[in-house]
Amino acid sequence: MTDILERSARDPDRVLRYSAAPTGVVDVYDGGSRGVLLLVHGGFWRARYDRMHLRPMAAALADAGWIVALPEFRRVGDPGGGFPGSVDDIRLLTRDVRTLVGAADAPLTLVGHSAGGHLAMLCADAGDARVVCLAGVLDLAAAQRAGLSDSAADEFLAGAPVADADPMSLPLPAGDIALVHGLDDAEVPVEHSQRFAERDSRIGLTTPACGHYELIDPRAEAFAAVTTALEG
């Protein structure tokens, strides 16, 4: 179920700049008045994976009534990418995105997939945002021990203490938190979200019968679980 990584989508309505870095751009898909979604892509924090594979999802969510901001950010392989640069970029945009897209008073939801879910969870408090985390790398220490994706966590941390960047060991965001994670996920084990949900009774967890990529595919049956989580 990886065809979504290659599928084309319509171009964004706007492409804006949020930082001086070459990666400091954000695609904006203008929808309706439901709020702003900051949609953070995955790819295990590596520069070879970019935001283009989430354009079909961004377009579909805009068609459903949201303003969708789909950013690029510094990743492992980019100057300043990895920890803390990747986190810093998403935190900056979380703080500023509503003003940037012209919806300063709209509610904000951070939506992150895989490693993007990890970044969204770390940055939500910067914008008083809800978090909807899709197949997130929410237990970074476990990802490091397991060597997920050829030791991607080690590349991301580059020697920094894992506790400094691990959602499992850092304070929870103050806003609402919803997790969606496929039971058959072969990239990020569902146990990441299950353990994270045990931290607080206010964390909602939905586990559809799917793998890793269906959660970002608007054509997939499991995508309904994502839209339900977004609607709160």
Rank of each mutant, 00 (worst) to 15 (best):
A163G: 03
T2S: 13
A152E: 00
S201Y: 07
H212P: 07
A104H: 09
A174T: 13
S149I: 06
E72G: 11
V76S: 01
G102L: 01
G35S: 13
V226F: 04
Y49A: 14
P218T: 12
D88S: 12
L61T: 07
A174V: 11
F44Y: 14
S169D: 09
R46Q: 14
A129C: 11
T109H: 03
S201W: 03
V101R: 09
D125W: 03
R46W: 00
P161H: 08
P218C: 02
I203T: 09
Q144V: 08
S19M: 02
M1W: 12
A21K: 04
A103C: 14
V132F: 02
R199P: 03
P71G: 07
G175N: 09
L37C: 11
F196S: 03
S151R: 12
A158M: 06
E187H: 13
S8V: 14
D88V: 12
A152L: 01
A69V: 11
A174Q: 14
W45C: 01
I4F: 08
V190C: 13
A143T: 10
G81W: 01
D217A: 00
A47V: 14
A220S: 12
A115Y: 05
V28R: 07
P107N: 10
D150H: 12
S86Q: 10
I90W: 00
L215S: 02
A142E: 15
V137I: 13
G24E: 07
P79L: 11
F223T: 08
A143Q: 01
V28P: 04
A62D: 07
A104P: 14
P107W: 10
W45L: 06
T99E: 15
T99C: 13
H113Q: 06
M168W: 01
E155Q: 12
L148V: 13
E191Y: 05
R195N: 10
P161L: 03
Y213D: 15
R202Y: 00
F73H: 13
D89T: 01
T227N: 01
T99A: 15
G211R: 06
L179R: 05
L205W: 04
L70F: 08
P71I: 09
L54D: 02
E191G: 14
M168Q: 06
D185M: 03
E191P: 03
S193H: 02
P218L: 05
V28C: 01
D78F: 04
L92Y: 13
E221S: 15
L61W: 05
R48K: 13
S114N: 03
D166A: 11
P56C: 00
V87S: 09
F73M: 12
A146S: 15
E6C: 10
A174I: 06
V76Q: 08
G116W: 08
S33C: 02
L179C: 04
D200K: 05
